[in-house]
Computed example of a mutant assay.
Amino acid sequence: MLLLIPGPVQTRPETRAAMAQDYAPWDNDFRAVYAEIRERVRDLAGGVKGEHATLCLQGCGHFMMEAAIRTFIPAGGKLLVPRNGAYAERAVRLATEAGREVVSLHAPDTEGVAPDKVAAALAADPGISHVVMVQNETGSGIVNDAQAVGAVVRAAGRRMILDSVSAFGALPMSLAEQPELDALLFTSGKCLEGLPGIGFAIARVDRLEACQGQAGSWSFDLADVYQHALRAGWGSFRFTPPVQALAAFRVALDLHAQEGGQPARLARYTANMHVLYEGVQTLGLTPYLALRHQGPIIVTIHQPADPAFALQPFVDALKARGVLISNFYNTTAPTMRIGCVGAITPEDMRGAVAAIGEALQELGVRQLAAA
């Protein structure tokens, strides 16, 4: 089965094979594996030893976002959220339910966040301490410019939390060049092509030390994760970790490096995206984003207006042809989203485009213009 979703992504056999044995997380051999992973992802993010620390939680990207908000923004504190997609909306809910005050910066989900509008919002409200932004919106496929937005946050003397869950490992990042970032958030099962189950935050040590005791949650306190590492060692997890997923993740990091690292992975995903984007246009379908705004992670496509089209039967017809896509969408308009990431190639994408055409024909969909 060709898995074309934005995560968990298709993985290599070598990665999956690492899951096929039992591990003890407290064993000294495995502690060395975990400590190595923490250093490797810090370095991959352009972090600095002694200035940045890798912190992990069991679970998904939403867990990391809630943990970062709770850890770095005190209860009652105010944050700005640029809202141009479904995952920014989820950050708003996580922050609100954690008792933080959200200032919204609304924008369409068809174009990136405008740095000048972020700057204006910060200038208008000195009470905002943080900007919380999603780097890649997996609802639409839009990429927000983390470097440009970070620059205006830095110039305003504020802090930033960046959700890079569906971008890290493919899009460039240098924490050393962005000191305004309290934390960069990502997970194991996206562009690094590991198995799901591990959430990561790479955070500034000085901020972790300054923010102890304000999370209001033991489970979601990154400052406590950091203090635990200082006490018990960098190979130690606070609570029982997903050890098989960690073992597989180390193999995924090896494969990422062998491919050529972040630039090579971005190049492959970009090639995948172009094959898909141009292919669906050739079929007569309409991409949700203009090409100038299209990111390399996911292509979202308007559902056809033809009454013969319905998303779940289309997904089923594709699955029967060995291609699996998401059976839901996160945009206002009816769409279908197809991932360009994972252990897949442009040739795989050409096969997927052919399968899309066959599935539409089987369902009797003739009117392919946007609904």
Rank of each mutant, 00 (worst) to 15 (best):
Y34C: 15
Y34A: 15
Y34E: 15
Y34G: 12
A35N: 14
A35V: 12
A35Y: 09
A35H: 12
E36W: 13
E36R: 15
E36H: 14
E36V: 14
E36K: 15
I37L: 11
I37S: 07
I37H: 02
R38Q: 10
R40H: 08
V41E: 00
V41H: 02
V41M: 01
R42D: 04
R42V: 10
R42W: 01
L44I: 13
L44Q: 13
A45W: 05
A45K: 04
A45Y: 04
G46N: 13
G46Q: 12
G47E: 06
V48E: 13
V48G: 05
V48M: 09
K49F: 02
K49Q: 04
E51R: 03
E51V: 02
E51L: 00
E51H: 03
H52R: 00
H52E: 00
H52C: 02
H52K: 01
A53F: 02
A53V: 03
T54G: 07
T54F: 06
T54Q: 05
T54K: 05
L55N: 02
L55F: 01
L55C: 05
C56S: 09
L57R: 00
Q58C: 09
G59R: 02
G61R: 04
G61M: 11
G61E: 11
G61S: 11
H62V: 12
H62Y: 12
H62A: 15
F63Y: 11
F63C: 15
F63G: 13
M64L: 14
M64I: 08
M64P: 09
M65D: 05
M65Q: 08
M65C: 10
M65F: 02
E66A: 06
E66Y: 00
E66N: 07
A67C: 11
A67D: 06
A67Q: 04
A67T: 11
I69C: 15
I69N: 13
I69L: 15
R70I: 07
R70K: 13
R70Y: 05
R70N: 06
T71D: 10
T71Y: 07
T71A: 10
T71Q: 08
T71S: 14
F72G: 05
F72V: 04
F72W: 05
I73T: 11
I73L: 12
I73R: 01
G76A: 05
G76H: 03
G77Y: 01
K78T: 05
K78W: 00
L80E: 09
L80G: 11
L80P: 13
V81H: 03
V81N: 03
R83D: 13
R83Q: 14
N84Y: 03
N84P: 13
G85Q: 00
G85T: 01
G85V: 06
G85P: 05
